[in-house]
Measured scan of single mutants.
Amino acid sequence: ERLAYIADHLGFSWTELARELDFTEEQIHQIRIENPNSLQDQSHALLKYWLERDGKHATDTNLVECLTKINRMDIVHLME
């Protein structure tokens, strides 16, 4: 799945992406607590919560915009 692929590449950027996707610091902290050992797991959790929260509004376009804002064009190019 594309989101899994994106999550695998996010690394430390997942928190920046979370902020761009309008997650609160508290929500970010919660994701860290729930997935303490792996940045990859934290990234996967973030994208899963985003899909659950935004439903049909959780679009590739939205994700590309946010990834561009945090200067992760490498991931944007991987999505093309």
Score class of each variant (00 low, 15 high):
G11Q: 12
A4G: 14
L63Y: 05
A45N: 14
E26Y: 06
L47S: 02
R2A: 01
T68Y: 05
K56P: 09
L3M: 13
I28C: 15
N37Y: 05
D54A: 11
H57A: 13
H44L: 12
H57N: 12
R32D: 08
H29P: 00
H44S: 13
K48H: 12
T61L: 15
N37D: 12
A4Y: 08
T15V: 12
S38H: 05
F12R: 10
H9T: 02
I31M: 04
D22F: 10
E34S: 11
N62T: 11
D74M: 00
E65S: 09
T61F: 09
H29F: 14
E65V: 07
T59V: 06
A58W: 05
Q42T: 01
V64H: 15
A4N: 11
I31T: 05
R19Y: 02
P36I: 01
D60S: 06
D22G: 08
T61V: 15
E26L: 09
D74F: 00
A58Q: 14
R2L: 15
D22A: 09
D60Q: 11
V76T: 04
W14Q: 00
Q30S: 08
E25W: 08
L17E: 00
W14M: 02
Q27G: 05
I31D: 00
R19M: 15
E34P: 01
S13T: 09
V76F: 07
D41F: 05
T68D: 15
H9D: 13
D8A: 14
A4Q: 11
Q42I: 02
E52P: 02
E34D: 06
S38M: 09
D54F: 13
D22Y: 05
D22V: 04
L39I: 15
T24C: 04
N71T: 04
N37R: 08
I70A: 07
G11H: 06
L17P: 00
K56M: 15
A18P: 00
R19Q: 14
R32L: 10
E16W: 03
Q42A: 08
L63C: 10
Q40I: 06
I28Y: 04
E16M: 09
C66S: 12
R53Y: 05
I75S: 01
D60V: 06
E65G: 13
I31R: 00
L63K: 01
P36K: 06
F12Q: 06
Q42C: 13
R72G: 04
I75R: 01
W14P: 00
R2W: 14
H44Y: 04
V64A: 11
L51M: 12
S38D: 10
T59W: 07
D22C: 05
K56S: 11
H57T: 15
A7G: 15
I33K: 14
A58E: 08
E34N: 10
W14Y: 03
R19E: 15
A18G: 06
L51F: 14
N62Q: 08
I33A: 11
E25K: 15
G11Y: 06
K56V: 09
E80D: 03
S38Q: 06
T61W: 06
V76H: 07
I28M: 09
D22L: 09
L47H: 01
R53I: 05
Q40H: 15
E25F: 04
W50F: 07
L46Y: 02
A4W: 06
C66Y: 03
G55E: 11
F23H: 01
W50T: 09
D22P: 01
D8L: 14
E52Y: 02
G55H: 10
S38N: 09
L51W: 06
E20A: 06
E52Q: 15
S38Y: 02
K56H: 13
K69T: 11
N71Y: 02
D60I: 06
S13R: 08
G11S: 13
A45G: 03
E16H: 14
A7P: 02
N62M: 13
L63V: 07
E20P: 00
A4H: 13
N35E: 10
E26S: 07
Q40D: 15
Y49S: 12
S13V: 04
A4P: 08
A45H: 04
Q27C: 08
I31W: 02
L17A: 05
H44D: 00
L21Q: 03
K48Q: 07
E20T: 11
K56W: 06
K69N: 13
E26C: 04
N35I: 07
F23A: 04
